[in-house]
Design a binder for these strands. Structure first.
Lengths: 132, 132
DNA sequence: ATTATTTAAGACAAAAGACTCTTAAATCTA
DNA sequence: TAGATTTAAGAGTCTTTTGTCTTAAATAAT
């Protein structure tokens, strides 16, 4: 699996938020229920996104979370970075310790190209473009 | 991370075996030391490959493991299948429950193409071709 | 036969990932 | 002000992955 469950949930939540019409806060409970995600687990994940400046949160009744910036200025890459980190960008697919451009493993070049495509998939389109 | 550590170790071990000139058995201890893999852990992993018919093993002094068939008849895909399984081939990258060709998630099509390239990377070249 | 070497098998432990629960703090409504 | 709602924070649990250890079985060499 490329991304952790936490990371997948984070992306689902942000896509859900971006699909909401109004700019008001959406409760994490609603996001969890509509996306079949464990509520308490999602709370922790979205806290990270809030700390990273991707979401803003508000306590109390009518509180919840919302996107910290317009959906056309957020990419999935930011979310992956916030939750899983971007280490997949420079990790050898065979886990070879010294593998790099100068000492490539047997799958290095092929994997490099695929890795770039994954990076592209995560960065070429904003959340706003993805939900169209 | 796309593949588990166990799966990465398995591929490293098979590539190491394929690089050996002679057809005699190579001890798991040697494979572990030369590839910086925990010996006991590697034993368990290679046992699986033996059970799957990818390796053959022999006990006692001068024993060890060797490829069960010529290296040009083994692909990395078989090894991944034996250790991690091939579920990545039909898993939604966002973990969306109902995601498929008819109900695609927002990254589905892009990910489908990348997934096919990963499949190709693992199946187009045999272990023998990879070590050239 | 005895001993050393090597895989087989399974129990065990440590770490990480995936949740769960409780208490506190903020804020709205009445 | 009191009560209800919602996020914040952190401890706790369960499962999977990773790694270790021990004992048994096979086999070669002496």
């Amino acid at each position: 699996m490329l991304f952790s469950h936490a990371c997948q949930y984070a992306m689902q939540a942000v896509l859900y938020l971006a699909r909401q019409q109004s700019d008001s806060y959406v409760s994490i409970k609603e996001i969890a229920e509509k996306n079949n995600i464990s509520f308490h687990f999602l709370v922790k994940i979205l806290q990270k996104l809030t700390q990273q400046g991707i979401l803003i949160s508000y306590k109390g009744p009518k509180g919840g979370v919302s996107l910290a910036k317009p959906a056309d200025q957020i990419t999935p890459l930011e979310i992956v970075d916030a939750i899983d980190g971007l280490s997949f960008c420079n990790m050898c697919i065979l886990g070879m310790p010294g593998c790099d451009e100068h000492h490539p493993c047997d799958l290095h070049h092929k994997w490099s190209r695929i890795r770039e495509e994954i990076y592209e998939m995560l960065s070429e389109k904003s959340i706003a473009e993805l939900i169209d």
